[in-house]
Computed example of a mutant assay.
Amino acid sequence: MLPASASDFPVTVQSCDREVTFEAAPQRAISNDVNLTEMMLALGLTGHMVGYTGVSDWKTLDETLRAGVGQLPELSSNYPTKEVLLGADADFFFAGWNYGMRVGGEVTPDTLGEFDIAVYELTESCIHIMDKPKASIDDMYNDLLNLGRIFGVAETAQALVDGYKDDLADFTASLPALEEDVAVFVYDSGENKPFTAGRYGMPTALIEAAGGTNIMDDVESSWVEIGWEPVIERNPEVIVIVDYGSVTAEQKADFMRSNPAFKDIPAVVNDRFVVLPYVEATPGPRNVAAIKTLAAAFRE
């Protein structure tokens, strides 16, 4: 990776509903959550980072990420406070709404701007503060390209995105056609009420790319708690389980298998559960692998 040239700056990128200008590449960056951190790693940006946050509490730190972050410290196991970011003398925070920041919370672009900490927001998460199109794999590509510009590695980012696009195009071209889209429910967590992905969540884009339809595509949200009634009524043929946290994927599947309310759902009847690690189900470099996993499952 070639170092950024001063002539590459200043650069201005769109971050949700804001334009953010960088006079130089950040040198003390912090990323929140495993998927955002992996975007930084994919671009080779650890030399620009002082740490990451929001991973271990969710039990999403796998060997790939552990090796990638090397000696970088986890500065907070959950959402960081303003004091954590100031204590690390951060000059950049890569986070998202409900990915390290909360609307009206103490850590936002406005509150951090007072301390000269620039913020770039995860594109998928922008739905929490503005209107945007439904989730698309392009959301993830957009973030990589913007990070490339912010850190002066635009060519690296473009090559990475082109590689993902070519890989996905080759894979999609080789897929046998489905007679009709497969009806899919995304089960993230929750027993009394399920937490799932709606129209603006990345799983919707992954499912569609693989030949399915998210049965909650009409829910005008990204990640959201709903009731079980619409799940039962919409008869999913496949259930995608997002694997993270203290409840295992198998425990989530067993909950659905053992509950009489779900006994007639085709996915439960036919035991068609597909497990995606959290890092694959959320926007990040492993989204292409997720599409391949789903496409194979839909065609079994």
Rank of each mutant, 00 (worst) to 15 (best):
S125K: 01
S125Y: 05
T81G: 13
I129R: 10
H128M: 14
N146F: 02
F93W: 02
Q158K: 14
Y120A: 10
F92T: 00
E121M: 14
G148L: 12
N78T: 15
G148N: 07
E114F: 02
A154Y: 01
C126S: 13
E155N: 14
A157V: 12
T156Y: 05
E83M: 08
L85P: 02
A95V: 14
F93K: 06
E121H: 06
P133T: 09
M130R: 13
T123K: 14
P80R: 02
S77A: 12
L147S: 11
F93E: 05
L160Y: 12
A95Y: 06
G163W: 12
L145H: 07
A90E: 05
Y120C: 01
L112M: 10
A135C: 07
H128R: 14
L144A: 15
S136D: 13
G96L: 04
P133G: 09
A88M: 13
Y141E: 13
E83G: 06
K82I: 09
R149S: 02
G163P: 11
R149F: 04
V161N: 08
G100D: 08
R102K: 06
F94M: 06
L144F: 13
K82D: 03
G87M: 02
K134Y: 14
I137T: 12
L86T: 03
F151I: 00
L145K: 14
H128C: 02
E121I: 15
G87V: 00
D91G: 09
E83D: 15
A159Y: 07
E121R: 00
I127H: 10
L147R: 11
F92P: 02
M101A: 11
Y120K: 12
Q158N: 01
E106M: 04
I117V: 15
A135L: 11
I137S: 01
A154F: 05
I117W: 07
E106C: 00
D139G: 09
Y79W: 15
N78Q: 15
G100C: 12
D138S: 07
F92R: 00
S136Y: 03
C126I: 12
F94W: 04
P80Y: 03
S125A: 11
G152Y: 08
P133N: 10
V84G: 05
P133M: 05
M130E: 15
R149D: 10
V107K: 04
L112I: 03
R149M: 10
I129D: 08
W97D: 04
A135I: 12
T108A: 01
D116T: 04
V107M: 05
P80Q: 00
L122H: 08
N78I: 14
P80K: 03
M101V: 10
E155P: 08
K134N: 11
D138N: 09
F94S: 06
A135N: 08
V84Y: 03
R102I: 01
L147P: 08
L160P: 05
V119H: 05
G87S: 00
D110K: 13
G113A: 11
P80S: 06
H128T: 04
D139V: 13
T123V: 15
A157T: 08
